[in-house]
């Protein structure tokens, strides 16, 4: 299942876990778990990309930061790419 999820990630422009769940006929929660497993095993890397609160805590200018949503970026690591090539 993990490789299938990885393949879905590779083929997406953006990640919709519900879409992946639908494609693989699994629950969204299960796909969430698969993501955690893939991160833990180093096949993908997840970054919070706009949580500026963490970037500028202690900075008085930080309050002016507009973006506080939880957008994440997913990067398929070299290990992940190797798995996809197999």
């Amino acid at each position: 299942m993990l490789k299938e999820v990885l393949n879905q990630i590779k083929d997406s422009d953006y990640i919709s876990k519900s879409k992946i769940a639908m494609n693989l006929n699994k629950s969204v929660d299960l796909i969430e778990d698969a993501f955690s497993q893939l991160v833990r095993m180093g096949y993908i890397r997840v970054n919070n990309i706009d949580n500026c609160n963490s970037n500028c805590s202690g900075c008085f200018l930080g309050n002016s930061c507009t973006s506080k949503s939880s957008t994440k970026s997913i990067i398929i690591t070299d290990k992940g790419k190797q798995l996809l090539e197999k």
């Binding site: 706009d50 500028c56 900075c59 200018l61 930080g62 930061c65 507009t66 973006s67």
Partner: peptide
């Protein structure tokens, strides 16, 4: 995304 953050303040 860094540009969207910059619309608030360029420091963050």
């Amino acid at each position: 995304i860094s540009m969207i953050v910059g619309f608030g303040c360029n420091v963050p």
